[in-house]
């Protein structure tokens, strides 16, 4: 892992020391401003794809949260994204209720099921917990199909109720996803400064020390699973709204793996630019490679390897470049 992901930073002085130039807040501001302008420069299909990219970025963030604050890996986060997506899909198609009500419900369900999952698995760590989350991922499509009277089965659900009546639905699908991503990233950045966030980090690295100062490790595990599950559900809710359809094909085991891949590609980063990188990898790379036919898995693997190596050697490359610029 590169040095750049060693610390989850707090204040400007520390951040500037680590990054050398701009703070993440400045970088995030520039990225958000560019994203706001993007629909005016790109065609409708790209705007649609970017909306999905923002939604997937939230999913990547959910997985990265579990890694950075809990020290654990999940290969089953599609369970939570499905919860969120079907909260939006079912309320929309059955009752005509918009995101104003379905997003809070999705969040609530994600947190609740994260906690419910965390309790029996509270003493599992590493590969054992990862395999347990795998069970969730494998169960999701079957569960959706078995409850087809509610979920619509293979045919899925179509999300058409606008958040703001009267506004263009195409624009809403894009900007709601962007807003959701910005809000979630902001909330996560605030967590780092909070007592709860610091306690989670201490419990991750030194559980005995956390215990000795009043933070129970069970509390830490349940809390981070609840948070990560909640963010995963928000990813699903955003996917449902931006993608307009909810069907079992969007919540397969492979989708769970792709979220983990996105998290790895972003080096488990929690800042907006980093999770956007992970989300872009999950969303855009398969699209860009779609014309490659049977070579898709090979090119996907190569691009994954390329991203990992680039991220790994980036500090060294940056150092060499700055040395060269000083010499010239």
């Amino acid at each position: 892992m590169s040095n750049q992901s060693t610390h989850i930073s707090t204040n400007e002085s520390v951040l500037m020391r680590l990054t050398g130039i701009a703070t993440p807040a400045v970088t995030s501001g520039i990225v958000v401003a560019s994203m706001i302008l993007m629909p005016f420069m790109l065609g409708g299909s790209w705007t649609f794809t970017l909306g999905l990219c923002f939604a997937n970025s939230i999913g990547v963030l959910a997985v990265s949260m579990l890694v950075r604050y809990g020290g654990e890996v999940s290969i089953g986060h599609t369970f939570f994204t499905a919860l969120g997506a079907y909260s939006v899909g079912v309320l929309d198609t059955r009752y005509g209720i918009s995101l104003w009500a379905s997003v809070p419900l999705a969040l609530l369900l994600g947190v609740a099921f994260g906690i419910i999952f965390a309790w029996p698995s509270r003493n599992l760590h590493g590969i054992y917990l990862a395999v347990t989350t795998l069970a969730l991922a494998l169960a999701v499509p079957e569960m959706i199909n078995n409850f087809d009277s509610v979920t619509g089965g293979y045919e899925g659900l179509y999300v058409a109720t606008p958040l703001i009546p009267g506004a263009s639905m195409g624009s809403q699908r894009y900007y709601v996803a962007l807003a959701m991503l910005v809000i979630v990233c902001f909330a996560v950045s605030r967590l780092r400064l909070s007592r709860q966030g610091m306690a989670l980090l201490l419990a991750k690295t030194h559980p005995a020390a956390a215990d000795a100062f009043g933070t129970r490790r069970v509390w830490a595990r349940i809390s981070i699973m609840g948070i990560s599950g909640g963010i995963g559900a928000l990813c699903g809710a955003t996917l449902a709204f931006s993608g307009s359809t909810v069907s079992p094909g969007g919540f397969t085991f492979w989708q769970a793996i792709f979220l983990l891949v996105g998290s790895v590609v972003s080096f488990y980063g929690l800042s907006l630019p980093r999770v956007l990188l992970g989300g872009a990898f999950v969303t855009l790379v398969p699209q860009l490679l779609s014309a490659s036919g049977a070579w898709i898995p090979v090119f996907y693997g190569l691009s994954l390897l390329g991203m990992i190596l680039l991220g790994h050697y980036m500090p060294r490359i940056r150092k060499t470049m700055s040395r060269n610029s000083e010499v010239s």
């Binding site: 007592r195 709860q196 610091m198 020390a209 100062f213």
Partner: peptide, 27 residues
Amino acid sequence: LCPDLTVRENVMMGIARNFKAGWLSAF
């Protein structure tokens, strides 16, 4: 000591048990 926390924040954890602000204020 937690390597992800600054020295000040590590020390803050020693008194964290005395505070009770809720989760909403964490986010």
